[in-house]
Design a binder for these strands. Structure first.
Length: 829
RNA sequence: GCGGUAGUGGCGGAACGGCAGACGCGCUAGCCUCAGGAGCUAGUGGGGGUUGACCCCAUGGAGGUUCAAAUCCUCUCUACCGCACCA
């Protein structure tokens, strides 16, 4: 029995309670079943779900429920990426302790997720800011440390003097502090790094293993790692008795070098400035440049400025003097940190040389053209052409010259072939409170000492002050700061930096496999069964950082013997953003649609259905309030048509004789089986949920047409149709289907415990198809032909068509192209 | 700037290189109703036309490949994502 009217709220509450009571989504290892690990990126607990979350979880839930119905043992967990700046800001601005703020937010968001009817195994929830989790984050830091992958290096951070705090890049707005507007400066600090560059080559190579990743994500990672092959060589700096090393990917242009540039951070700069008559001006210039961002420095738009140091070096091949400049347009942490300037081969160098009147020498020109400085107005940057003005290499083709010059330099001992990566080591130190403390102790006698494993976690103290000028809030807790050295027992102090939250999120997918383990981050056995993640789903904005860090982490754990596979995420689905009025939903624009309101108005099933229907998952999604109405209307249509057939269904006629079907029956049956086929393929192979839903809408339309066409419906066919419609809809709209299933199909079982339906190929077959007749690619007529017609049949039928004959007239038929089932194209002149 | 992606009716979107616009929204008309922000039926890219025939145009723009292009190639414009301390 079902109610006459669809009442989503009562139904949804009822079934959510039922699933919770019956632990419907609890997962255990079951070696008799194939496993499938379906994972959505865990959220930062900002306090409320936004539509991006709703989209992410709706997609994941369909995949998880679908795979369960397909017979997989599905792991589908949820947790919280709960360390980070917003909690600390809440503490600074409103005096709320970060822990309380975070846990309250988690409670609220968990409630919202539960209201969506998501099939999570909540017993596996992980929360990165809780001791039972960050204890293992610290343990993993120690693992990295022991393997030589966690090292200290000097590096700069954004610093605001007024607030007395380090600033994140996003807190620096136009070079000023976001809170006080004071000018931001760069401050040199000793900071911890993870040596991700040790894995650069493997991170690059193994992209080939990721067949289930979008090509664009792999391309972005490839470019981010940025492998290049080139030449490293040095210029002698006679006045300083030093060498200045440079790296270039264009050794073919080496004879065109007319200056060398270094950034203010370059180690040679101090020596260049010492006893320099222009020291004061140069220092002022360095200070200014030091505070500009990498994007500004590498932009070819922004102005290239520099100062000649007055110091010269010697070109290793020509012996000519070359000026050394300090500039704002090179990066200090790529290559050797110094760059050779070739005005005619690089547009940035061209602009710089033009501005400062530096000499230009043409050393490469196109094969069929002679370049002249008189007519050139920009650099010749093509990787093609012939060398000129290049001593014995003159006349050589660019591609050959590259190798020849490197060989020559190596032969003469002047330089060497070098592979470089754009990828930099991962700076993991944060001078903040709300993160996992780095488990290091500094002892005056023993130096840097790891906190022993059995003393983990290093707990976050609660008696800290924010923004009092200390490098890190943790330094303001006397109790935290002072400790005894684990080695010698003498007085020592703790590291006061915490870890980048990206570390917490680089291994959480492993913890889900064994979330309550107190002896290890996870057991090998649990992870061997569940890992790797079969389907990972999350925003495209994570295409590089999070996904690259996670890949790096897993490879280190593999090398440490903790896991036995190479990549954490076998398949990746990157979802697009949710937009409103063409733009990102944001509070400042005021176009935010609250999921909570949508749930309150229509219920979870409508919200889930709409967000899956409105666009394919990888594309951006334009939110439409009217579109939501449409989805709600569809669910009402489903409800009414099932209600209409309730008495027929109550007879429980579960079969029928296919030989006794009339045309209306056959049409409905064909529609049903075509829909099963379409939905199965769309969900399983392409994740095209929008077209899967549209085909189910067509099926419901066909059921209405059938209702009107037949006074006496075929009870068996109706039963089959309704039953399968509910099964197909179940992963998308789990509550309404559960209610209808219990009401008209089987009150003892859950629709979510059923097998996914199969279609009958014979039911889809049609006898005749309509094809298009074209002349010279233009549609001229249509023709109904037997579905089995061959190419030869089609050609004969097409050429016999009266209208076609008339249109061809006296023209000569040159060619006839036949595509069975689709068209015939007659080429006639 | 560099790297990546996307542009199709009034709107969201369909379309193995093979009938452009499925499905939904919106709109129009009719039916039903005391009533409707409910439901049902039909229509709905633009232009022409003998107005259920038929013809032409149309997938950001310009070229190209092909019997055939929204789809492949080149250039270009626009929007969005990432750029290493937001997560």
């Amino acid at each position: 029995m079902i109610e006459e009217k669809y009442a989503p709220h009562a139904i949804e509450k009822k079934w959510q309670q039922y699933w919770e009571d019956h632990k419907t989504f609890k997962t255990e290892i079951d070696k008799n079943k194939p496993k499938s690990y379906v994972l959505e990126m865990f959220p930062y607990p900002s306090g409320n779900l936004h539509m991006g979350h709703v989209r992410n979880y709706s997609i994941g839930d369909v995949v998880a429920r679908f795979r369960t119905m397909k017979g997989f043992n599905v792991l589908h967990p949820m947790g919280w990426d709960s360390f980070g700046m917003p909690a600390e800001n809440a503490a600074i601005q409103h005096g709320i302790p970060p822990k309380k703020w975070t846990l309250d937010n988690i409670a609220n968001m968990r409630r919202q997720q539960k209201a969506m009817g998501l099939s999570y195994d909540w017993d596996r929830e992980v929360t990165t800011c809780k001791e039972d989790y960050y204890r293992w984050t610290q343990w993993l830091f120690e693992l990295f440390y022991k393997r030589g992958l966690a090292v200290k290096k000097r590096s700069s951070a954004n610093w605001c003097d007024t607030c007395g705090t380090v600033l994140a890049n996003e807190q620096v707005i136009d070079g000023k502090c976001w809170r006080c507007g004071h000018e931001v400066v760069k401050k040199q600090l000793d900071q911890w790094f993870f040596k991700i560059t040790d894995y650069a080559e493997e991170l690059l190579d193994d992209l080939a293993l990721l067949k289930g990743w979008p090509e664009r994500v792999k391309t972005m990672q490839r470019n981010w790692i940025g492998k290049s092959e080139g030449l490293e060589f040095s210029f002698d700096v006679p006045s300083l008795h030093e060498k200045l090393a440079v790296y270039t990917t264009r050794p073919d242009t080496i004879y065109g070098v007319t200056f060398v540039v270094v950034p203010p951070e370059h180690p040679l700069v101090e020596k260049l400035l010492k006893d320099n008559p222009k020291e004061k001006e140069l220092r002022a210039f360095c200070d200014k440049v030091r505070n500009t961002s990498d994007i500004e420095r590498t932009s070819s738009e922004s102005e290239k400025v520099g100062m000649y140091t007055g110091v010269d070096c010697i070109h290793p091949l020509t012996g000519h003097k070359v000026h050394i400049w300090i500039t704002n347009y090179v990066l200090y942490d790529y290559g050797t940190g110094a760059v050779m300037g070739v005005p005619t081969g690089d547009q940035r160098d061209w602009m710089f040389a033009t501005k400062y009147g530096i000499e230009k020498i043409i050393t490469l020109q196109p094969k069929d053209q002679v370049l002249s400085l008189d007519t050139m107005d920009h650099a010749y940057e093509d990787h093609d052409g012939v060398l000129v003005n290049s001593a014995q290499f003159t006349g050589m083709e660019m591609n050959k010259a590259m190798g020849a010059i490197i060989d020559y330099m190596e032969e003469k001992g002047l330089g060497k072939r070098k592979i470089n990566y754009r990828l930099r080591d991962w700076l993991i130190s944060r001078q903040r409170y709300w993160g996992a403390p780095i488990p290091i102790i500094y002892c005056p006698k023993c130096g840097e000492v790891l906190v022993p494993e059995d003393q983990l976690p290093v707990r976050l103290p609660e008696d800290v002050k924010f923004g009092d000028g200390s490098m890190s809030p943790l330094a303001t807790s006397e109790e935290y700061l002072h400790c005894t050295c684990p080695k010698c027992g003498g007085p020592a102090r703790r590291e006061t930096d915490t870890m980048d939250t990206f570390i917490c999120s680089s291994w959480y997918y492993l913890r889900y496999t064994d979330p309550h383990n107190e002896k290890a981050p996870f057991s090998k056995e649990a992870n061997a069964y569940w890992g790797p993640v079969d389907q990972y789903i999350g925003g495209i904005e994570h295409a590089i950082l999070h996904l690259l860090y996670s890949r790096f982490f897993l490879k280190v754990l593999r090398d440490a013997g903790l896991v036995d596979y190479d990549e954490p995420f076998t398949n990746l689905l990157t979802q697009g953003m949710v937009l409103k009025d063409g733009g990102k939903m944001s509070k400042s624009v005021g176009n935010v649609v609250s999921p909570e309101e949508i749930l309150a108005k229509y219920g979870a099933d409508t919200a889930r259905l709409f967000i899956l229907f409105a666009a394919p998952p990888e594309r951006e999604l334009e939110w439409s309030d009217q579109g939501v109405d449409g989805s709600f209307r569809f669910l009402n249509r489903v409800w009414r048509i099932v209600y209409h057939f309730e008495k027929v269904l109550a007879q429980q006629v579960t079969s029928y004789d296919t030989a006794k079907l009339d045309d209306a029956d056959k049409d409905l049956r064909r529609a049903l089986h075509a829909t099963i086929k379409k939905v199965s393929e769309d969900v399983e192979e392409r994740f095209n949920f929008n077209t899967a839903i549209s085909s189910m809408m067509e099926l419901v339309n066909a059921m209405y047409a059938y209702k009107d066409a037949k006074k006496e419906p075929n009870a068996g066919l109706i039963y089959e149709t309704v039953k399968n419609l509910l099964l197909l809809l179940a992963p998308f709209v789990p509550h309404i289907t559960e209610e209808l299933w219990h009401g008209v199909i089987n009150e003892k079982t859950s629709v979510h415990a059923q097998k996914w339906p199969a279609y009958d190929p014979a039911a889809i077959k049609v006898d005749n198809v309509e094809i298009v007749l074209q002349i010279n690619g233009k549609n001229r007529d249509r023709l109904t032909v037997p579905a089995a017609a061959t190419k030869a049949d089609l050609e004969k039928l097409a050429l016999a068509d009266e209208k076609i004959k008339k249109l061809i007239g006296t023209a000569k038929v040159l060619k006839v192209i036949c595509v069975p089932g689709r068209l015939v194209n007659i080429v006639a002149r």
